[in-house]
C-alpha cells in the first residue's frame, strides 16, 4: 500500500459508513463459506445409515478412509499427491524458460502483448480445455493418426484415460499460470544487479545461477504453491483425461456425493484434502511473499 508522506490514509468524515462498509462481504463469507465448512467438519464426525444419523462424534468415517477396500481411498490420496507434485515440478520447468525469454530476450514493447497471447488459452473454459486435449490424445486424436500415418503403429493408439494424460492437461494449464507469476517476478529484478555481476567478471551462466535465479524464487514459490493447491483439488481434468482407471482424491469424493450420497464420508475426505493443502501451506509459508508478485 502506497502512502504519501504527511497524508494519513484515513479520511475525516464518514466513520459510520466506513465502519459498516466491510460488513456485507464479511457476513457473506461467514454465512456461505465458513459456516458450510464448519457444518462439513461436524458432519464428518457423524455416521448415517438409511438417512438416519446413527452416530454422533465418531471417527468412523476417517477409519473408513484409511481402511476401506484395502486402502483404495488412501491410494487415491497417494495418487493425488504424486500427480500434483509431478505436475508442479514439470510446470515450473516448462514455464521458467518461457518467462525468462519473455522478460529478458524480448523487446520491452512486445513483452506484454506476447504474454497476453501466450496465456490466452488460460482463459478458455476449464471443461473445454480438457476436452480439446482429447482431440490430441484419444484413439481418434491426431497423435494416434500421426503414428498410424508414419507406420509407427498398426491400429489406433489411445493415450486418454491415463495418468500421463491428466499430467499433460494439468501442465498445459499451470505452465501458463506459472509463466505469469515468474514473469512478474523476473521483470522486477533490477538490471543493475545483473550488470554489476557481469562487470565483475561473472559468466552469463554464473549471473543466472547466482543472481537471477535466487531472486526469482519468490515468483516460482507463489506459482508453485497455487499450482499445488488448485491441482490437488481439481475434479475436471482427472475425470476427463485420466478417466476412472486410477482415481484421484477429488474423484473419490465426487463418487461418494454422486453414487451413494454418503456425505459424512465425503466430508471426512474433504477434511483430509484440506489438511494436505494446509500442510503444504505451512511448508511453503516461509517462501510465500505474495507482495513480490
Amino acid at each position: 500500500m502506497r502512502t504519501i508522506a504527511g497524508l494519513p490514509m484515513t479520511t475525516r468524515a464518514a466513520p459510520r459508513l466506513l465502519a459498516w462498509a466491510p460488513a456485507p462481504a464479511v457476513i457473506w463469507t461467514a454465512l456461505f463459506f465458513i459456516l458450510p465448512l464448519l457444518a462439513m467438519a461436524l458432519v464428518s464426525l457423524t455416521r448415517r445409515e438409511r438417512g438416519q444419523t446413527v452416530d454422533l462424534w465418531t471417527f468412523a468415517n476417517y477409519g473408513t478412509f484409511l481402511t476401506q477396500g484395502g486402502g483404495v481411498f488412501l491410494e487415491a490420496l497417494r495418487n493425488s499427491i504424486e500427480v500434483t507434485l509431478i505436475v508442479t515440478v514439470l510446470s515450473v520447468l516448462v514455464a521458467y524458460p518461457i518467462a525468462y525469454v519473455l522478460a529478458y530476450r524480448v523487446p520491452a514493447r512486445w513483452q506484454r502483448v506476447l504474454l497476453v497471447l501466450l496465456v490466452l488459452p488460460f482463459w478458455t473454459s476449464y471443461v473445454i480445455r480438457s476436452y480439446s486435449w482429447l482431440l490430441v490424445l484419444s484413439e481418434k486424436g491426431i497423435i494416434s493418426l500421426a503414428l498410424q500415418g508414419l507406420g509407427l503403429a498398426d491400429g489406433p493408439v489411445g493415450l486418454g484415460n491415463t495418468r500421463g494424460a491428466t499430467v499433460l492437461g494439468f501442465v498445459h494449464f499451470f505452465a501458463m499460470l506459472l509463466t505469469l507469476t515468474i514473469y512478474a517476478n523476473l521483470v522486477q529484478i533490477r538490471e543493475s544487479y545483473r550488470r554489476a555481476a557481469a562487470d565483475l567478471g561473472a559468466s552469463p551462466l554464473q549471473v543466472f545461477l547466482r543472481i537471477t535465479m535466487p531472486l526469482s524464487l519468490p515468483g516460482v514459490a507463489v506459482g508453485a504453491f497455487l499450482t499445488f493447491v488448485l491441482a490437488i483439488g481439481d475434479y475436471v481434468t482427472p475425470q476427463i483425461l485420466g478417466g476412472s482407471r486410477e482415481l484421484l482424491l477429488p474423484q473419490a469424493i465426487m463418487l461418494q456425493v454422486g453414487r451413494t450420497a454418503d456425505f459424512p464420508l465425503a466430508s471426512a475426505m474433504s477434511m483430509v484434502l484440506m489438511a494436505v493443502v494446509t500442510l503444504a501451506y505451512l511448508l511453503f509459508a516461509r517462501h510465500l511473499r505474495m507482495d513480490r508478485v
Binding site: P22, A25, V26, T29, A30, F32, F33, I34, L35, P36, L37, A39, M40, V43, V229, L230, I232, G233, D234, Y235, P250, I253, M254, V257, F263, A266, S267, S270, L273, M274, V277, Y281
Partner: peptide, 24 residues
C-alpha cells in the same frame, strides 16, 4: 482478521466449497 476472512475462500478447492454449500 477481516482481510484473512475475506481472502480465505481462495485457499479452498471449489469442490469443497460447492459440497459445503450443497450440504448447508
Amino acid at each position: 482478521l477481516a482481510e484473512l476472512t475475506l481472502m480465505a475462500p481462495i485457499t479452498v478447492s471449489y469442490l469443497i466449497i460447492g459440497m459445503g454449500l450443497l450440504m448447508t
